[in-house]
Design a protein around this nucleic acid. Structure first.
Lengths: 156, 156
DNA sequence: CCCGTTTTCTTGAATGAGTCAAGGAAGCGA
DNA sequence: TCGCTTCCTTGACTCATTCAAGAAAACGGG
């Protein structure tokens, strides 16, 4: 098992407790899976969790991911055309590079200063809470294998 | 009918022709529906199209939207947790305000200068093609009806 | 340390946006 | 008008995600 039983609690356990969530092996495994697989979709998380806990139901993973997202222990991102993906890096307002060809997702730090695009030219009266920036393009490998063109097939 | 038969072609017809697409009444109706319903989802587009063309199949609308998106006559956006939505305003790199409570979407112009967030601090070797910025928050009405709090229920 | 309450997990079925595929209809250049 | 090509209709299907009911586990109080 990946659990830490040496006196002090493992990081996931502490994180769950700090968020007033019950500590279950399923949730610990989900947290660890998200840590180990940056930007993993639910399918990937389920498989990763089952390496340690073969019996988990997909529903438990869905539930855990929702709960963890709600309390802010993981973050859910869903670039257009993609299923839900989860990441553990939270608290900072970082953004994402998404490859149009292979769907690779990479983190990037905030662009300009600290909260770059957090001030739209006019906010239409909205109370703005968060700015989410997604950069679309081609990752190094895909760019290399399709020289000259940006989008190899179609993509928008 | 909304079609223009007075000598020169209607705008949608011309747009289709300019994009080397066959001019069909279904595509014209889809283009007009997207114009008339900013940020409409596919369901809404289908209903709008059927007001003029009661017999259109949902598939024709899906196909048209895909084709129109491919040639750049409409743009498809998919904020997290939302189904695909389409808009006619294209060519400028404008962004969106999305209300977490009622899902209202409003356009905003580019924030800083012309291409605000188009330069991530490090691009991880990506060839960047487009930056997509989504501002999450509460629209004026929802903000008014839930004073003090930003997100009424849960949200991320 | 055990019990009871509450939350969470398992199981299995259902939902719904979007896609696939085959044949008929319409657009459009000759 | 003809014929080729593209597009539309019909209907079945996929698959991520959700719903629901009952069993199991967590954990605070006794």
């Amino acid at each position: 098992m990946t659990e830490n039983k040496q006196g002090h609690e493992s990081e996931p356990t502490a994180a769950l407790r700090n968020s007033s969530l019950r500590v279950t092996k399923q949730r610990i495994a989900v947290l660890e899976a998200v840590c180990d697989h940056q930007h993993a979709d639910t399918e990937t998380v389920i498989c990763a969790v089952r390496e340690n806990l073969p019996e988990v139901s997909h529903q438990a993973v869905y539930d855990s991911l929702h709960t963890l997202t709600e309390v802010g222990l993981v973050r859910c991102i869903q670039p257009s055309g993609s299923v839900a993906r989860y990441e553990r890096r939270i608290g900072d307002n970082h953004h994402h590079l998404v490859c149009r060809s292979c769907n690779l997702i990479v983190d990037v730090d905030c662009t300009v200063g600290q909260a770059p695009c957090l001030t739209p030219s006019h906010d239409a009266g909205f109370v703005i809470e968060q700015a989410e920036v997604t950069f679309w393009g081609l990752c190094p490998e895909c760019a290399a294998s399709s020289p000259g063109r940006l989008a190899p097939a179609s993509a928008v």
